[in-house]
Structures are given as C-alpha cells and as structure tokens.
C-alpha cells in the first residue's frame, strides 16, 4: 500500500517534470514580453538629429513606428531600408516612422543616416532615458503605437517585411498588407 502510493507519487513527479521542462524547452528564455503593450506609450521629447526637437505629441492621432537603433549595430543597418520603405509608403495612411538613436555618438549617428539615406525623423537619446522608459533591452527594437497613443506591438531584433506588416496591421487596421 505504502509502496503503491510511493510509486504513484514518483510517477506523478516524473510526468510533471517532463511536462514542465518540456514546455520550458519550447520557450526562449531571452524573449521577454514587454509590459508596455496595451498601455499608453511613454512620452518623449528628444533633440532631433540635424536640428529641432522630436516629440511624440506631434504625432497625436497617427500611428507611430518607433525604432531604437545605434550606428554600431549591424542588424540596424539591415532593417534601415525596410523602415525607410514603410516611412514613404505609409505616409498617406497616417503612419509615421521615427527613429531613436541610443548608446551612440553624434557624428556616427549622423553618418549612419546619410549612408543609409534615411528621411524619417530621428531623435538622439544620449542618456538612454527614453530607451529605459520604453523598457528597451538592446538595439534594434521597434514599437508600434496606435492612433490612440497606445503601444500595440513590439518587435525585438531587426524588423523584416513580415514582422513589420504584423505590427502595422495593429496600428493601421485594414490598411496594411
């Protein structure tokens, strides 16, 4: 009797062990969901690269794609073209793209913009405060903010055509794709 209970308990522990860790194996321990999704986006006001000020309030009522980048980050270079295309293609669909440069130097950031022929506005977050406000882990990260000013979606790592459209769908329903 005692033995049966013991064996049953052992079996249960073994199954729980396999289920829990089996589930754990399918998860990426580095993928951390942002608690900001579904909540109003943090406000920011940053010096614009090339002069002026970049404020999120200026885009009230529009969908905003906020991309955090740095000139030393190679994947940021890869995604720059995608972002530029979106910025041009979605202008009349009430979606704007803004870049936020972080952990970088003025000159290198400026050079990056010229080299990659970026036309959308970019702010410079020298002290990293805006990045921390957005809960950024590393570059690149892209946030999709809807017309009501809420964070609707977040992409960690470089955006590709597919992943950016997934985000755009959430901030410009019916328009994307």
């Amino acid at each position: 009797m005692k033995r049966t209970v013991g064996l049953a308990l052992l079996g249960a522990i073994a199954i729980a062990f396999i289920v829990i860790f089996g589930h754990g194996l399918t998860q990426d321990p580095r993928a951390i969901p942002s608690p900001l999704v579904g909540y109003p986006a943090p406000r920011f006001s940053l010096p614009k690269i090339g002069g002026g000020t970049l404020r999120i309030e200026d885009y009230a009522g529009k969908g905003v794609v906020v991309n955090f980048w740095a000139s030393w980050c190679l994947p940021c270079r890869d995604e720059a073209r995608v972002l530029e295309m979106v910025s041009r293609g979605y202008a009349e669909k009430n979606v704007v793209v803004v870049g936020i440069n972080m952990q970088d130097e003025d000159a290198s950031a400026q050079k990056f913009i010229t080299e990659e022929e970026i036309t959308f506005p970019n702010g410079r977050d020298a002290e990293g405060k805006t990045a921390i406000d957005f809960g950024v882990y590393g570059v690149p990260e892209t946030f999709f903010i809807d017309s009501a000013g809420r964070v609707a979606h977040k992409v960690v790592g470089p955006v590709h055509a597919d992943s950016i459209i997934e985000g755009l769908k959430k901030i410009a329903p019916g328009e994307a794709g």
Partner: peptide, 17 residues
C-alpha cells in the same frame, strides 16, 4: 571592420554624463 564597429559600443557612453 566588424570589430571596429562593435568597439564603438564602448566609446558610446562618452555621450553619457
């Protein structure tokens, strides 16, 4: 070149107070 690019990460905080 890659190495140099990545090294920029270090000097990066120079912009930081």
């Amino acid at each position: 070149i890659r190495a140099a690019a990545a090294f920029a990460l270090l000097g990066a905080a120079s912009g930081v107070r």
